[in-house]
Nucleic acid binder design. Structure first.
Length: 590
RNA sequence: GGUCCGGUAGUUCAGUCGGUUAGAACGCUUGCCUGUCACGCAAGAGGUCGAGGGUUCGAGUCCCUUCCGGAUCGCCA
């Protein structure tokens, strides 16, 4: 018989003393004193101590002897104030306990493969296999609950601003460009395949042509690429598109959402508008298109200062069009040879640099690792240019552009971590703008879209489209938080001629463009409004809001690094009859 | 596909130079215990040292192969 609960395990306080209550939940811990049994009863709202005493009910006390961890039970009893000495200040419900008169054991539980505790050190594959146990841990429940609050807030926000949530197909056509598609065979149309959306990009643009004006969707996207701590094959986007807007309008709308999310979920206030930084500045000052601005370590370009020195690495690098760039590490000028050798190894192994040059700006002595080749006055000028204070260390790389920036950017992150320079209490949000429209793929020897093929070029760069496509900037923008890309978008092309031109630049011929994207080009012929939008990575945002180290901690049922779901063991082989129906024959050897 | 780290009790780990019966903590089982809250006390069970091969008188330890997990590079419009 069900003891139907009247209260949860998180809500009882001294004010409830005397109330007859029924609680349901899991046995968290058991403290059996023989004549007296204490059970911490847990549900997702909290933990309440319940007491089995022969004086209250001998039968219940006897039955409680059988209780073990993770048994699911119901108890009926009376809320009682604890004596002052027995109050547990560490528990929200620590002022009271429930003295039990009746116990129902709904379900016994085997000993769990790992303990249900918050600070678990258990291997992740075991946690994933027994995900239902892992999700009983309060920290995981907090993550899922925060995620739920966040998505409700997102819907409420966009509704308030006149957006319409429209569902787009999960079965769509496979398109060239971008990530590898997940394919779904069509039984009805032998030999043809759907693809799962990498994003609903074309649909939301079509919705703009349809006049929906303001669209959003919280939507699953799929990309068949290798996994990372912050990358899952299926992930959730907050997808947004607006008509008759420029980039500022999209960014302002997004900022409003993000600041509300931070305020309502973790109580953090963000100053708006968010800072903007061009891609160019991000790369040359921080070596990244998603700079982590929770710490400084901004770059100084020494190329002009050192281009005439005898030191070949400096002179030759600059002569070849490369750069000599460095950053100041505050207060680390005292580091010894061993540590500097270690940093040099990092620069080589992690960042891929050829070597590391450094200057220690110590009181009375400015030590340069290349003092033999670089005159003192040049070194002094470098110290001045860098803004280094006494006691600071300057790390310098020389190399080809743009590689040297990326290398120094990697070193910057590594050094920040090494010397604990990241202020984790801060939340550094910014927009990175003016991305290049195109990126040259040396393997395929062709231009590829840096954002996607529907991104509009900046009008002032249009004249470069034919002569120097790599120099054309896009009306694209990324939202960056703490060194993590949490969103990106652009003002789109809405002119069929421009869209054709873009396809042509990407090496997509007229025929292929018509075949793969004909519906979009057609749509643009029938009155397409100027439009733009962006997509936010919901999982990553929740990861940052909860301080999680992995995306897997904010997704209820994630895949491991091999894209396998360990709990239900998928993907898996299927019955040959299913393959027959789908007209699929496996390659020999599989 | 590359690089790095890891795999020993249910869990998290230790295991020295290759040498006796592979240990600890937590968990688990049993008993005792009426104010515990990381309860305590006592006793106990629990091991394919990821797998296979090799070197050796002898391998958890050394070598080779392989499997598995994680981080990362490539990849991710």
């Amino acid at each position: 018989m069900l003891l139907k609960r009247t209260r949860t395990c998180g809500e009882l306080r001294a004010a409830h003393a005397g109330e007859r209550v029924i609680l349901n939940g899991w046995v968290d811990t058991r403290r059996d004193l023989g004549g007296l049994i204490f059970i911490d009863l847990r549900d997702r709202y909290g933990i309440t101590q319940v007491v089995f005493s022969p004086q209250d009910n001998a039968r219940a006390h006897a039955a409680a002897d059988a209780l073990r961890g993770e048994y699911v039970i119901g108890v009926e009893g009376v809320v009682t104030n604890r004596s002052a000495a027995n109050v547990n200040a560490k528990m929200a419900t620590g002022e009271v306990e429930v003295r039990v008169h009746e116990l129902q054991i709904y379900n016994a539980a085997d000993t769990t493969p790992f303990e249900i505790v918050d600070d678990t050190k258990t291997n992740e594959d075991l946690r994933l296999k027994y995900r239902y146990l892992d999700l009983r841990r309060p920290s995981m429940q907090r993550n899922l609950i925060l995620r739920s609050k966040a998505t409700i807030l997102v819907r409420e926000y966009f509704d308030r601003h006149g957006f319409v949530e429209v569902e787009t197909p999960v079965l769509m056509r496979s398109t060239p460009e971008g990530a590898r598609d997940y394919l779904v065979p069509s039984r009805v149309n032998p030999g043809t395949f759907y693809a799962l959306p990498q994003s609903p990009q074309t649909y939301k643009q079509i919705l703009m042509v349809a006049g929906m004006d303001r669209y959003f969707q919280i939507v699953k996207c799929f990309r068949d690429e290798d996994l990372r701590a912050d990358r899952q094959p299926e992930f959730t986007q907050i997808d947004v598109e607006m008509s008759f807007v420029d980039e500022i309008a999209v960014q302002e709308m997004t900022e409003g959402l993000i600041s509300e999310l931070l305020r309502e979920t973790i109580g953090v206030e963000v100053a708006l508008p968010l800072p903007r930084m061009t891609y160019q500045e991000g790369m040359t000052r921080y070596g990244s298109d998603k700079p982590d601005l929770r710490f400084d370590l901004a770059f100084t370009d020494f190329s002009d200062l050192v281009k005439d020195t005898e030191f070949r690495v400096f002179r030759q690098t600059v002569a070849d069009g490369g750069a000599v760039v460095g950053f100041v590490v505050p207060g680390q000028g005292h580091l010894g040879r061993g540590m500097m050798d270690r940093l040099t190894e990092k620069a080589k192994n992690e960042a891929g640099a050829n070597g590391l040059i450094y200057i220690k700006n110590m009181p009375g002595e400015v030590f340069s690792s290349v003092a033999k080749f670089v005159p003192e006055d040049v070194t002094a000028a470098m110290v001045r240019a860098s803004g280094a204070a006494e006691g600071d260390l300057i790390l310098i790389l020389a190399g080809r552009k743009p590689d040297v920036y990326a290398q120094l950017g990697t070193l910057r992150l590594s050094v920040a971590q090494e010397f604990n320079l990241i202020d984790t209490t801060r939340n550094a949000l910014l927009w990175v703008t003016d991305f290049p429209l195109l990126d040259f793929d040396p393997e395929e020897k062709r231009w590829v879209a840096m954002h996607h093929p529907f991104t509009s070029p900046k009008p002032e760069d249009l004249h470069l489209m034919d002569s120097d496509p790599g120099k054309v900037r896009a009306r694209a923008y990324d939202l960056v938080m703490n060194g993590s890309e949490i969103g990106g978008g652009s003002i789109r092309i809405h002119d069929p001629a421009m869209q054709r031109k873009m396809f042509a630049l990407l090496g997509i011929g007229e025929a292929e463009a018509q075949e793969k994207f004909g519906f979009l080009l057609d749509a643009f012929r029938f009155g397409a409004p100027p439009h733009g939008g962006l997509a936010l990575g919901l999982d990553r945002i929740i990861m940052l809001l909860t301080g999680s180290r992995s995306l897997r901690d904010v997704i209820a049922f994630p895949k491991n690094q091999r894209a396998v779901s360990l709990m239900d063991n998928c993907p898996d082989v299927v019955d040959p009859r299913q393959l027959d129906e789908l007209h699929i024959q496996l390659k020999p050897g599989l």
